[in-house]
Amino acid sequence: MSILVDNNTRLIVQGLTGREGQFHAAQMQAYGTNIVAGVTPGKGGQETLGVPVFDTVREAKEAADANASIIYVPARFAADAILEAADAGIDLVVCITEGIPVLDMITVRAYIDQTSTRLIGPNCPGVISPGQAKVGIMPGNIHIPGPVGVVSRSGTLTYEAVAALSGRGIGQSTVVGIGGDPVIGTKFVDVLALFEADPDTKAIVMIGEIGGNDEERAAEFIREHVSKPVVGFIAGRTAPPGKRMGHAGAIISGGRGAAADKVAALESVGVPVANHPDEIAELIAERLN
């Protein structure tokens, strides 16, 4: 059916009472996502959007039997919020927050790796399984259910690709934004493995960008473990070296992380790489037929 989120997702919103948290929680509810509780320290006992608010994730999880959490708290509190969710035993934690210090994320990731929690993000748009659940900030209306799994390091660029797919009537099984930071919870290879195992995903779109070498690792993984057709896109072909392009992780440094290397790595394992977002949909359409 999908990966990571579906009709069985019972979601906690950390930061529900804040401006962004409330806006996006309302949007998620409108999409049909089952939000079962909110968490804002010091605001336990209130109700927001018809949902009970708790002081801690542990209380919220126990009272509402939640299995997923989404985090909208400011950067200086976000690392703590992720740890709290993991410590409470939440299965899936999606962190939207941008701007978490990288040393905090190194510690958080080291801790998460010792638990059964899966972290998506931070600095990501979240996860959506069209028609089932939206756990994120993406515009739900551009998505339609279907056979294509999408995994991406960016936000709006993913919407662009999804809109191009939907525009051709090609739906999506799940769309996962893994985030643009140098240290994230779930990488391309993790999501590729999930899509490969999902019977309803027939083809995969992978949207990478400059910086790091996760795309190169993904190419190796695809060669060994992915039987489904994959179409790639790499943002930043015109990006100069040594400059951070918005995302904390999008920087070509020490001669590593250039778009050309990533494109070459993907093409060498038979993954066609689109020149622009519209072309992603064209390439997928060819492979689905």
């Binding site: 660029l157 993913t158 400059i210 896109f233 943002a235 930043g236 918005g246 995302h247 020149n275 622009h276």
Partner: peptide
């Protein structure tokens, strides 16, 4: 002028394209 880093890069790239 673009919203989102990935889309901003893709926009630069498509201008060049």
């Amino acid at each position: 002028m673009v919203n989102g880093a990935g889309l901003a890069m893709a926009t630069m790239d498509i201008v060049k394209h």
